[in-house]
Design a protein around this nucleic acid. Structure first.
Length: 476
RNA sequence: GGUCCCAUCGUCUAACGGUUAGGACACCAGGUUUUCAUCCUGGCAAUAGGAGUUCGAUUCUCCUUGGGAUCACCA
C-alpha cells in the first residue's frame, strides 16, 4: 500500500469559508488517519480572478484551525513549487505528449465564433458540444491559441468513495480547453498533471466538479495515468434557501468565527459533523477522535445546512472541556477593558465562575465586567422582574440592609457566605428566588451571573458591602 | 432545456429488509431548598407522493414530485 497523499487545492480568489474548510478538513483527516501526507496547492492559473493576498489568507486560516499540511507553497516539499503559476514548465511536456499522440489540437476559432455555435445549439434545444465543430485541419499550436483536448466520447462507470457507483454517457464528453491562449493551463488540465506529479492518492473535492468528472477520466486515459481514488463532497447549504453556500450568499470567513470567540476545535467538530457522523450518538469529538474515527464512506451524500444555533451550542460544550489554564490563554484578547490591569490570579478566579456560561469567548465582557469595575445600577432590572417587582422600596431597603449586616460579620469564603445567606432566608422569611435575585442584582446589575455565594466571595467583602450600600441608597 | 447527483423531525443526523423510526440543536414545560445562557427530566416533531418486489419496506426497483450541481480561454 502506497502512502496516502491528499491535497487541498483552492484558488486564491478570496477568503476561506466553511465549505472550503470542510473539503480541506476531510482530506486532512483522511491523510492523518492513514499517517500519510496532506498537501496544500494553490491553483492560481486565472490571473483575472486572483484576489491579492488571498493565498496568505488561506494559509493563515488553515493554520488557525490547526489543519496542518506537510507540503505547501510556504514550506516547500519534494514536489515544489506548490503554486500552479510557477509550474508552467511542468505542464508543457504533458501537453506535448497529447499533441504528439494526436489527442490535442489548436483551437482556431475566435470566442465570438464559439459563442455563435453555442447560440445555435441553444436555438436547436440541444446541448452545445465543441467537438461537433472540431476543425478538420487545425493549425499547428503556437501557444497563442487555446489548446484543446481531442476527446474520445464514451460511457464511464466509476466509483466515488462518498457518492458510490456513478456513471455517465458519451454525450457529456467534450473537447475541453487544456491550455488557454494566455499560456496558463486550465484547472481541468493542471490539476490532473499536478495530482499525478505529486502522487496524490485521493482526490477529494466539491460536488461542482462531478459533472466534469467524465471529461477528467477521458484525459487520465489519454495521458495513460491511473485514476486516483475519487471522493465528492456534497455542498454545504446557506442558512436560508437551498443554495450552495458561497461568498455571495453571506458565507463567512472562518477567521471571523474565530474572532467572534469560536474555538478552532468547535469549528472542526462542527464542520466535520456537517455530513458525517460515526454511527453512534456521540456529538462532541476532539480533533484526535475525528482523525481516528473519520471515514469517507460515512459521509452523507446530500447537502447539509449550516446551523449557527448548533454551532453556538457546540462551542459552549468545547469551552467547558478546556482546562482553566488553556481557557485563560485563549481568552487573552476577550477580556473587557476594565480587566486590563487586574492580576492573572483574580482573572482566573472570575474565569472559573463563568466557564460554564460562556458560549463564545466574546461573551466574556458582559459576563465579567462587574467584577472589575463598578456596575451601573439599572433599577428597571428590578421592576421588570416578575417576582421582584412586587416588592416595595421599603422591603427592598430592609432586605438589603439585613443582608449587609449579616455579611459584615461573615467570613468571606464561599461556604461561610452560603451559610450566612441560608440563615438570612430564615430571618427574612423570603424565598431564595426573591432574596438571592435581589442580592445578585444589587452587586452585579448584570443580566446573568454565576452562583451567588461564589460570586460574592470573588467580589470580596469590601466591594459587596459598598455595592449593597449603593443599592440601599437607591431604594430610599 | 440536456446531463448528473440528492431526498428521515424546522435543522444536523441514526436505523444487516423485521425498532413503539433513535440521538442532537432549536422550541415548550418542569426541576436543580439561588438568579441564569450551565446542568437534569419530560414534551413537541420526520421516512415527499405513487406503484412494484417481499410474509414484511425508511431500507431494494421503477415512475412522479421537489431540491441541487453543471453545461466558460473560472476553479
Amino acid at each position: 500500500m502506497t502512502d496516502v497523499r491528499t491535497r487541498f487545492a483552492p484558488s486564491p480568489t478570496g477568503f476561506l469559508h466553511v465549505g472550503g474548510v470542510r473539503t480541506a478538513l476531510f482530506a486532512w483527516l483522511v491523510a492523518k488517519q492513514a499517517k500519510g501526507q496532506f498537501i496544500l496547492r494553490i491553483e492560481d492559473t486565472d490571473q483575472a480572478r486572483e484576489v491579492e493576498g488571498s493565498a496568505d489568507h488561506l494559509i493563515s486560516s488553515l493554520k488557525a484551525l490547526g489543519i496542518t499540511y506537510d507540503e505547501g507553497p510556504d514550506i516547500g516539499g519534494p514536489y515544489a513549487p506548490y503554486l500552479q503559476s510557477q509550474r508552467l514548465d511542468t505542464y508543457k511536456p504533458w501537453a506535448q505528449k497529447l499533441i504528439d499522440s494526436g489527442r490535442a489540437y489548436a483551437d482556431p476559432y475566435t470566442p465570438e465564433e464559439i459563442q455563435g455555435f453555442r447560440d445555435e445549439a441553444r436555438a436547436d434545444k440541444r446541448a452545445f458540444l465543441y467537438r461537433d465543430h472540431r476543425p478538420e485541419n487545425p493549425p499547428a499550436w503556437d501557444g497563442t491559441m487555446p489548446l484543446r483536448f481531442k476527446s474520445e466520447p464514451k460511457s464511464y462507470e466509476w466509483h466515488d468513495e462518498v457518492m458510490g457507483d456513478l456513471h455517465s454517457g458519451p454525450e457529456v464528453i467534450d473537447d475541453i480547453i487544456l491550455i488557454k491562449s494566455d499560456g496558463f493551463p486550465t484547472y481541468n488540465f493542471a490539476h490532473i498533471i499536478d495530482d499525478a506529479e505529486m502522487k496524490i492518492t485521493h482526490v477529494i473535492r466539491g460536488q461542482e466538479f462531478l459533472s466534469s468528472q467524465p471529461n477528467y477520466l477521458n484525459i487520465y486515459e489519454a495521458l495513460d495515468l491511473a485514476f486516483p481514488i475519487f471522493a465528492t463532497m456534497p455542498h454545504i447549504l446557506g442558512e436560508s434557501g437551498n443554495k450552495k453556500l458561497g461568498k455571495r450568499d453571506g458565507a463567512k470567513d472562518v477567521l471571523d468565527y474565530l474572532r467572534d470567540g469560536y474555538l478552532p476545535e468547535t469549528m472542526i467538530n462542527f464542520i466535520a459533523s456537517l455530513g458525517w457522523n460515526d454511527g453512534t450518538e456521540q456529538e462532541i469529538f476532539s480533533t484526535t477522535e475525528l482523525i481516528e474515527k473519520f471515514s469517507l464512506a460515512r459521509v452523507q451524500r446530500s447537502g447539509a445546512r449550516f446551523d449557527e444555533q448548533r454551532l453556538l451550542w457546540m462551542n459552549g460544550q468545547h469551552i467547558r472541556l478546556l482546562s482553566l489554564d488553556d481557557l485563560y490563554e485563549r481568552v487573552t484578547d476577550f477580556w473587557p477593558e476594565s480587566a486590563k490591569k487586574v492580576s492573572t490570579e483574580s482573572k482566573k478566579q472570575v474565569l472559573i465562575l463563568v466557564q460554564d456560561r460562556l458560549k463564545t469567548l466574546a461573551d466574556l465582557p458582559t459576563l465579567t465586567d462587574y467584577f472589575f469595575t463598578e456596575p451601573t445600577p439599572n433599577w428597571s432590572m428590578i421592576t421588570d422582574n416578575k417576582q421582584l417587582s412586587k416588592l416595595s422600596n421599603e422591603e427592598i431597603n430592609s432586605f438589603l440592609s439585613q443582608t449587609k449586616s449579616a455579611l459584615e460579620s461573615s467570613e468571606f469564603d464561599a461556604e461561610s457566605i452560603q451559610n450566612t445567606l441560608n440563615s438570612l432566608l430564615e430571618t427574612t422569611g423570603q424565598k431564595p428566588g426573591i432574596l438571592f435575585s435581589l442580592i445578585r442584582l444589587a452587586v452585579s446589575w448584570a443580566p446573568f451571573s454565576p452562583v451567588l455565594n461564589e460570586t460574592l466571595s470573588v467580589l470580596g467583602k469590601d466591594t459587596v458591602l459598598s455595592r449593597l450600600d449603593s443599592a440601599i441608597e437607591l431604594a430610599k
